[in-house]
Amino acid sequence: MDALSHLHPRHGEDDVDRYRSNPPLSVIASEAPDVDLGWFKGLKKEKVDIGFESYSPNFYYKNRRVTVIFTADLNKLRELMPAQVLEKLQPLQVWPGRGLVALTAYAYDYCDNDSYNEIGLSVITNRPGSSSFGPLTLMSQAMSNNFWGYVLKLPVNTELARVRGVVGYNLPKWLTGINYRETDKSVVVEIFDSETGKVDVTMETRKLANLSSKVSMVTNSFTNVDQQGQLTTGYATSRQLSHASSTSAEAVSLSLTEGSLSTFIKSLNLGKMVKYEYVPEFQSALYSPKPL
């Protein structure tokens, strides 16, 4: 019995391939006729054993996200990263004593493993084996749209996403309530405390007007430690169909409470907001981790 065996597919037993990340694109086309699947037709899936039988990459057909990048206490970020990870990569130092974290809210409206919401809190790092030149490295990553990070927190709001992430991708996921809603002018994300059920973190971001519809390809890679204590790395390639960014602090409001995630975020001693990204439409392919 594998890690996913107790999770029953929503669409009946014959559709279990959805839960192994291998539904036929013809099924997706019939269920979501408004989604352009052209990009996915050019990507090849391979069978993988990631603690359960699955296929890589995992396809995300229709999604939204908002990302806010803050400065944070560099020494604290180093403390939170395992020693063996730090041997290969370091948090980027943007000025003395300050590193960077990215806080992202995702709404996966339609993907191989159903739909779910997710919150990512990651340390921005250099690429494993490369030197870190702080701001220059960040500029290089930004220019190439190829970012590296170490994931600190990754709550999700479905059990399927939690099990797949923890067992298959070695990611720090837990199950909790996450609301991702939109008003006329903003995106409002509420993250609930899994222990108390109360609102823990609230992030409200402005819907930016200067949207670009020029397709932008972005790669986000992560390095972490698997269940056997080995260093692994995985990545996601995103095809951004609608996107905009801002450096105005007025575009973002982050409200913290006494909840567990808020307390953790406070410990990072967040400072200046460096960048806000508003991406109301993107597609993505998530590749399973491999030994580093």
Rank of each mutant, 00 (worst) to 15 (best):
S238H: 08
K44Q: 12
H6R: 10
T202L: 00
I50D: 15
A142N: 11
V225L: 09
E46T: 15
S213K: 00
T202S: 01
N63E: 08
L43F: 10
T205D: 05
A209E: 12
L138G: 04
E159D: 08
P33L: 09
Q230D: 15
I124V: 03
S26W: 07
L286A: 07
L89I: 13
V252L: 11
V123A: 05
R181Y: 15
L292K: 05
M273T: 06
K290D: 13
M203D: 01
E277K: 15
V167A: 04
V156S: 02
E281V: 00
L121H: 10
T263G: 09
V166A: 01
T104V: 08
G38Y: 07
R162C: 07
R239C: 12
T237I: 09
E277S: 15
L89T: 12
P33G: 03
D184I: 09
D109S: 09
G51E: 03
N146S: 00
N117I: 11
N210Q: 01
Q283H: 03
K45S: 04
V123Q: 05
A102K: 05
V252K: 06
L261W: 03
Q90D: 02
T247N: 02
A105G: 00
T223I: 01
E46G: 15
N179K: 11
Y276K: 02
L256T: 00
K214M: 08
L37H: 08
R239G: 10
E258P: 13
L261H: 00
Q90V: 06
V199S: 02
C111V: 14
P9F: 10
L100S: 06
S30K: 04
C111N: 09
Q93I: 11
K214L: 09
L175S: 14
G229M: 14
Y180L: 06
S242Y: 03
L77W: 12
K45G: 03
Q90L: 05
M1Y: 06
L171Y: 07
D184V: 12
F147L: 05
T183F: 14
P155A: 08
S267A: 08
S56W: 08
P135Y: 03
G168M: 02
T237K: 07
V218L: 14
V101M: 02
R162Q: 04
I69Q: 03
P57A: 04
V35T: 04
L7G: 14
K44H: 12
G234M: 10
T263M: 10
D114R: 01
F147D: 02
G120E: 00
T104A: 10
S213M: 00
L138S: 06
